[in-house]
Design a protein around this nucleic acid. Structure first.
Lengths: 146, 146
DNA sequence: ATAAAACTTAAAGCCAAGTTTAAGTCAAGA
DNA sequence: TCTTGACTTAAACTTGGCTTTAAGTTTTAT
């Protein structure tokens, strides 16, 4: 199955110019062209785009993702490098997970806090309250985030 | 307790220029100055910085964070606006959580995949294998990410 | 009193990751 | 065949969030 850049744009939600930019940066080393010079995308590139989005979300730059794509195109000789890359990314994603959990806790506390403040009509009273007066599931959050 | 910009920089890990930039952008509306014009940070600003980092991580821009800080300084009249902001952020953070979980699954699959490939010495065999030959905890990931 | 460290400002600079522009070429349907 | 929409390129532009620069002022320690 072959795809034009417009079709890939519809499938992936990336704009045509983004796809061209990725190509220019070397993110599709195996991609071909038609006789007329038109980019020919295949399932391979659709897969690459999914991988790009994944690696990008772990904080990898376009240049670093290019390195991975080049390794991929070099076959078994670079298995070790690719394995190492994913183990590095695993550590980063573990940190991201912790960070999102911490943010979630803080935001949940603030949601609870402003619900209370609005119920009372004022923040003053709430600030004075000891955390022991808070619901148990909020107490630790309240201690952590004041 | 009062702090100079250098002390706050040490406490928070933000550079002096970042703190000055935040101040210029209106993120510390209640902050004072010494007679000589030196910024005087208090616990209030240390708290604001924690909130800034939290809101930033939910995708809020500096301008939007400024809006929150202005609301905060306006007191009870803006309780509703602040509550709404946190409920919006809650939805964003829920999405972030899902995204990190998806990325985590993909990266874990790739770690397993490259461990296998290296054990075999080649990717070829692995690509041919049906997902049923994979360990149960990997099968769903393998179906999802090929 | 004086030197050094820490602070002040405004304005320019930097960076990655695209997006836009302009001028032109290609492909598909009537 | 011709029109229309989709594609092509290189290069300039945009954006947010800082960082750097340069020249000067304040604070702290001796």
């Amino acid at each position: 199955m072959y795809y034009t850049i417009g079709e890939v744009s519809n499938i992936t939600g990336l704009s045509g110019s983004t796809l061209r930019y990725y190509d220019k940066e070397g993110l599709f080393p195996a991609m071909g062209r038609s006789n007329g010079g038109i980019r020919v995308f295949t399932e391979m590139e659709i897969g690459a785009i999914k991988m790009i989005e994944c690696l990008k979300s772990t904080g990898l730059s376009i240049k670093e993702i290019k390195q991975y794509m080049v390794w991929y195109s070099e076959g078994d000789a670079t298995l070790q490098e690719r394995r190492n890359l994913f183990y590095e990314r695993l550590e980063v994603v573990k940190e991201q997970m912790k960070a999102v959990e911490k943010t979630m806790a803080m935001i949940k506390f603030k949601c609870w806090y402003y619900d209370r403040a609005l119920a009372i009509g004022s923040e003053e009273e709430l600030k004075q309250q000891s955390t022991e007066e808070f619901p148990p599931e909020i107490q630790e959050l309240a201690r952590t985030f004041q």
